[in-house]
Amino acid sequence: MDVSLVEHLLLNIEETVSIVLFGIGFTILLLHRNLIKKIMGMNIMDTATYLFLASKGYITGRAVPIVVDGIQDVSAYINPVPSGLVLTGIVVSVSTTALMLALTIRLYERYHSLDLDEILILAKEEEQI
């Protein structure tokens, strides 16, 4: 593997980690059979993206974008845009999480299982009866 590539990845450590986390979350969401795990995977995937965004806004040596002592210089504060986007995103992921958990409860009430494959098979059988 190229040395400069690894070096660059280490310089971009936050992004690298967030991509790895994104991959882990994506894999859990796609492959894990347990619904609660799937939902956790979804959350991990979302937070990983938010970490990616937030690290994009960060500038070394600059402060929180809250105006202090009337200083309004660009060189004093970090980029506020990603923070705003992530704030919006977090709300979205809470809503989807709540919705999916509610669906999980209802499915468990009905089929007494958390395994998605099993639930799908049971649902199919139930209809045929």
Binding site: N12, E15, S55
Partner: peptide, 12 residues
């Protein structure tokens, strides 16, 4: 995506 990250601008 990792490969992509390696060619993105450096954080900070």
């Amino acid at each position: 995506l990792l490969w992509t990250v390696a060619s993105l601008p450096i954080t900070g």
